[in-house]
């Protein structure tokens, strides 16, 4: 039971990190990332490949962060002058391209077999027995650091400028903000956090394969952000935990409805997540808690964001 709890909390930690990343990209900067799973994969594979080649875990993690941030900046550059739809299309297509590389470049990624026995950092010092707990503590500490950094960014002038760009880029540009640079930076910062999460994923599971970096990861992250309230980092934590409780809680469906096969229960759970996401968008688009805003209330009848 203790082991199960530690495992669940570690999953939740990874989900929180991904949610925090998406929250700065989408929540704060209004840049939609449908290819989150692909960036996550880049982070995980970078860390795993380096660690397999004898690079120590901390350097490998730093490299994963840097590489994922660089890819994020590059992909966002392609569409920055265009409408948000194009970033959505490009990131999704990028994620598909990443998946193809992961599956086909066997010399680098091991293909569909994946990479196994990824060496964990500091395993000699901590020992195998308490490693899972120590790993969870490290994850929580990293979340605290990332959260603190992101909160600082959000409340700094940079964060205000980002929200200004999100709400109306023409006004922001008129006020002398460098819209392009702001957007690339926001996407790269989010990418760095995704890279960190990817590296943690690789070290936690010690085995990765391309199937783990498919669309459902992206859907979970969006669900976390939507449930938590777009733009609010504190809400996001609650959102990620809620989504994980939903996911894990419905795992027991198969005991309740024994006629269904394991495969059917899995599909049903994912369907519920999708339905939940749509229902949130329809009935509570602001999420459980909404972003703290200084602005005066919009006059009745005005449509925000149009």
């Amino acid at each position: 039971m203790m082991g199960y709890l530690v495992a669940i909390l570690t999953f939740v930690s990874l989900a929180v990190l991904l949610g925090l990343a998406l929250n700065i990209q989408w929540g704060q900067a209004g840049m939609i990332n449908f290819g989150l799973a692909g960036f996550y994969g880049i982070g995980a594979y970078t860390a795993a490949i380096l660690a397999k080649h004898g690079v120590d875990g901390f350097t490998a993690t730093a490299a994963a962060i840097a590489v994922t941030a660089a890819f994020s900046a590059g992909v966002s550059l392609a569409t920055l002058r265009l409408r948000e739809d194009y970033l959505a299309i490009t990131t999704l297509a990028f994620s598909e391209a990443v998946r193809l590389v992961l599956m086909n470049e066997v010399w680098l990624t091991g293909g569909t077999d994946g990479i196994r026995d990824i060496p964990r950092p500091l395993v000699g010092v901590i020992g195998g027995e308490h490693y899972e707990v120590a790993f969870l503590v490290a994850c929580l500490a990293l979340i605290a650091i990332v959260y603190g950094l992101l909160e600082r960014i959000v409340s700094a002038p940079f964060g205000r400028a980002l929200r200004a760009v999100r709400d109306d880029d023409v006004v922001a540009a008129t006020l002398g903000k460098d819209v392009l640079a702001l957007r690339v930076k926001a996407f790269a910062v989010g990418g760095a956090v995704i890279g960190l999460a990817g590296a943690l994923h690789a070290f936690y599971f010690t085995y990765i394969d391309p199937g783990e970096f498919a669309g459902f990861v992206t859907v979970y992250a969006f669900m976390s952000v939507i449930v938590g309230g777009k733009g609010s980092n504190r809400g996001l934590m609650a959102g990620a935990v809620t989504v994980m409780i939903l996911l894990e809680g419905t795992r027991f469906l198969k005991d309740v409805v024994p006629v269904l096969s394991a495969q059917q229960v899995a599909s049903l759970r994912l369907m519920l997540i999708g339905v939940g996401l749509i229902a949130m968008l329809i009935y509570r688009p602001q999420g459980l808690s909404s972003e703290y805003r200084l602005s005066a209330r919009q006059p009745a009848g005005a449509e925000p964001g149009s």
Binding site: D85, Q264, L268, M271, G274, I278, L281, P285
Partner: peptide, 23 residues
């Protein structure tokens, strides 16, 4: 809502359809 919300909703629809088929 803004069109980003519609985009996300369409991704949700895709997720539901795909898993309904798997189901």
């Amino acid at each position: 809502a803004d069109h980003i919300t519609l985009l996300v909703a369409s991704m949700g629809v895709a997720f539901v359809l795909e898993n309904a088929i798997r189901f």
